[in-house]
């Protein structure tokens, strides 16, 4: 029951992070999400990942505030990306169906945490796929990283150092994204298309 509540809180935090207009709020709600994952891991007995996850939350706040927070956001929803949006919608629908099936197959009696962890992952994918602000895309990647950590712990992993790898990836991504938006003077991913053809 506690697990389910934790996951619901995490999903709420993730959805808020994706949808809020203020990136500062998004950072702290991502931190809340990370904290939730950490708490879940510690209660499930995964102490090493839980501890690493806890550290990663502070790193996350520091890094996102330093790199991406000062960048201005573009107006949302560019025209004419119907193809990718349609594909994402199909992907989302099919993924939810698949997630139900998989959760049921893994744990027939207590499938809800699995299902919720998949929903969390999909929230991340939603942000990456539907937002044109690279800050939101980075936030989506953060959600995916954290959600997959939670899923790993759910499926029985107890020893891994994957949170460490995850936070390293996020730091590097934030730095690259900040450099990129500095260089191009925009955070609109639809305007970053010098390389094509």
């Amino acid at each position: 029951m506690i697990t389910i509540i934790l996951f619901l809180i995490m999903i709420a935090a993730a959805v808020y992070a994706v949808e809020t207009g203020e990136f500062r709020n998004a950072v702290y709600s991502l931190a809340l999400l990370g904290l939730g994952v950490s708490v879940y891991q510690l209660t499930a007995g995964a102490f090493l990942p839980g501890a690493l996850q806890l550290i990663s939350v502070f790193v996350l706040i520091y890094v996102l505030n330093r790199t991406l927070l000062p960048k201005a956001s573009p107006r949302e929803f560019a025209e004419g990306e119907y193809f990718s949006r349609a594909v994402f919608l199909i992907f989302m629908i099919l993924s939810v169906i698949l997630a139900c099936g998989v959760s049921d197959a893994i744990a027939p009696n207590s499938y809800s945490p699995y299902l919720l962890s998949f929903v969390l992952i999909l929230t991340g994918f939603f942000s990456v796929a539907f937002k044109k602000d690279i800050k939101k895309i980075v936030a989506g990647i953060v959600i995916i990283e954290y959600a997959v950590e939670a899923f790993l712990t759910l499926s029985g992993e107890r020893q891994g150092i994957t949170p460490l790898i995850g936070i390293l990836a996020i730091v590097l991504l934030a730095v690259i994204a900040a450099r990129l938006s500095d260089r191009l003077g925009t955070t609109d991913v639809t305007k970053i298309r010098e390389l094509r053809g």
Binding site: V87, A129, R193, E194
Partner: peptide
């Protein structure tokens, strides 16, 4: 084919997810 590679991250991601859907299906 070159026209399809339009430089948009979202397009490329869509191909990837579409590929994933088809493979799993």
């Amino acid at each position: 084919l070159s026209w399809f590679h339009n430089g948009l991250l979202h397009t490329y991601l869509a191909w990837m997810l579409l590929g994933g859907i088809v493979i799993i299906w």
